[in-house]
Design a protein around this nucleic acid. Structure first.
Lengths: 335, 335
DNA sequence: TTGTACGCGTTATCAC
DNA sequence: GTGATAACGCGTACAA
């Protein structure tokens, strides 16, 4: 196996007794050759298992038929669902997807932008963990699509988000409808613009029903494992003598942590307290009691993102902003 | 932003009043230039935001500083943990990782091999879904590392696996130790060589204790959602009047499905039946009763894989075969 | 320090 | 209508 040698278009041309131009034409079905030469060339290609060199191709075309995806953490149901659906859609059009994991680290994110740029990708989909994107991000003029999160930028970048605000509004409304009055909101550590957005739906619904909500009913978690953090946060909150009969969380894990806290002090769910999670991750179906949650359709988000990016790459018309609506998934925790 | 133009090394050379060779030397810190020219060149590079063209670089060096990862399904805790740890390790050495999702489809897997080949990747890590890999897989002579699964191949490919057989042996032993006698084994749809491997640990442990085990105590699931499949499979099994006091599963989801079936007919877990899952996925901690399971250390597997592949790329000495041991995580389901 | 050949596929131009 | 020739893209490394 050590003597395996790369075969180039030149070798194929020699072996088939034609020019490289003809081989190229046959491969790309450009015409300008006879049936006979086509067969001859194809036969040689098959025999030697020739694979064209993408580096040379990208060099010439300054396009690599490759798309980059910058994503905070692939080890997360919601994000990996998005990644898979993007890849499937991209695959379908014979593009390849470069997945880059940033661990929610802005420094890594910027590094990946540069890396993808130099790799000659044709476009980038980014779920950013930065508050702001600068226009000198890339040296080339390729499309960038913002997904899920929308950092401030001066490039008028196209955006796909889900209607999170409305999702939280609906969830809060649902709890109110079921008779909850002391509803608190648990928010995980995130870039500020995201948090604002999330809180708003909750605050609006509470206000509409003249229920009290404000900084004293919002628990802000720190960076780290949200499950354990929210468990202790709920304990602390109750130890201060405050009342709770409803909880809205910004992740399913937070909700599960919160329920663990409630169970420990013998609160009954959903009788005493009703709980909403967020993202409809696998664990929300499995935990006990099963968790009501907000569905954001990550597969649809990914599919749409891929479609729009491909359009942008082809210079076709697209929407500047696409909002995918959320819906409620009601289970035992709010029954 | 439309007039953004790609800047090449030639432009930089002109602007700095030196040759492209010198610019290249400065960029790669090869020496052979004065302090003054270095500063001048760096200044121009910074000013114009020059990013080197990777396609040209790969073309020349036939190496892209890129590694491919072929993986069955990234939307799975175990696999995505592996992917993340590979990426982190690879990142660290300034390589980039190309993640390719095969959906457990051999046809897609072969397509990705060709694609990565033509992309000039420097090496490939594959969690294969094929029973056999042929030596004409690639046109170039780059290292391939088999991870987790070990399809038959005639290329003497290096391998990293976890000691699954021993894992199932230990789990089965543990149930026997706790007094179980009628222990069944649930196996998901997988390539045959994998199944054999998995069954063996179970069969061996049963044999050593002179307990009956064979085809009638092994439930083979079909392709599909293992959670629901194993639930109905357990119902069927019990409806046939067969006895169960222990279940070993090849995934946590199967175990959760099995427990759902048991609960429905009022079996108590772990009193009447003890259950082991596999892979220590998030849901095993969250479900109720919490699930005992087999830990395979995916992060360690990924890290090791990345280290070995990088060594292979650099032509350094490495182990041909690395086996990472499993351990038991005991929770309520086997208490 | 620099000039330049090289790597490889594409495409415009030219020839029959 | 068929096919060949050669320039091009850009970074690298050897010879000068």
């Amino acid at each position: 196996m050590n003597s395996k040698k790369t075969i180039s278009i030149i070798d194929i041309a020699k072996l088939a007794g034609v020019s490289t131009a003809t081989v190229s034409h046959v491969i790309n079905k450009r015409g300008r050759y006879s049936k006979a030469t086509e067969e001859k060339v194809r036969a040689v290609i098959d025999e030697y298992g020739y694979v064209s060199n993408n580096a040379a191709k990208s060099l010439k075309s300054s396009s690599s038929h490759t798309v980059g995806l910058i994503i905070p953490n692939i080890n997360n149901d919601f994000f990996s669902s998005i990644a898979v659906s993007i890849q499937q859609e991209i695959d379908f059009e014979d593009y390849s997807l470069f997945i880059c994991n940033t661990d929610n680290d802005p420094v890594k994110e910027r590094r990946y932008f540069r890396k993808l740029d130099s790799m000659q990708v044709d476009g980038i989909i980014v779920i950013s963990c930065q508050n702001r994107l600068e226009s000198d991000l890339l040296s080339r003029n390729i499309p960038i699509l913002l997904l899920d999160r929308t950092p401030i930028n001066n490039m008028d970048l196209p955006v796909i988000t889900s209607d999170i605000q409305n999702g939280f509004y609906l969830a809060t409304k649902k709890l109110i409808e079921k008779g909850c009055k002391d509803i608190i909101f648990i928010s995980s550590f995130l870039a500020t613009y995201v948090n604002t957005n999330r809180k708003d739906g909750y605050l609006q619904a509470m206000k509409e029903s003249s229920l009290h909500a404000g900084n004293d009913t919002i628990i802000q978690l720190k960076k780290g494992t949200s499950l354990y953090q929210s468990e202790t946060a709920i304990m602390d909150y109750l130890n201060q003598g405050k009342k709770i009969d409803g909880i809205i969380c910004t992740s399913d894990n937070q909700a599960i942590g919160a329920m663990a806290a409630l169970k420990r002090i013998n609160y009954s769910i959903p009788k005493d307290v009703k709980v909403f999670g967020f993202d409809n991750q696998l664990q929300s179906r499995i935990c006990s009691p099963s968790l009501s949650t907000i569905e954001r359709y990550p597969s649809e988000m990914g599919k749409t993102a891929a479609e729009i990016l491909l359009k942008l790459i082809r210079n076709e018309e697209t929407e500047k902003k696409t909002v995918i609506s959320c819906s409620l998934v009601e289970r035992e925790s709010t029954a």
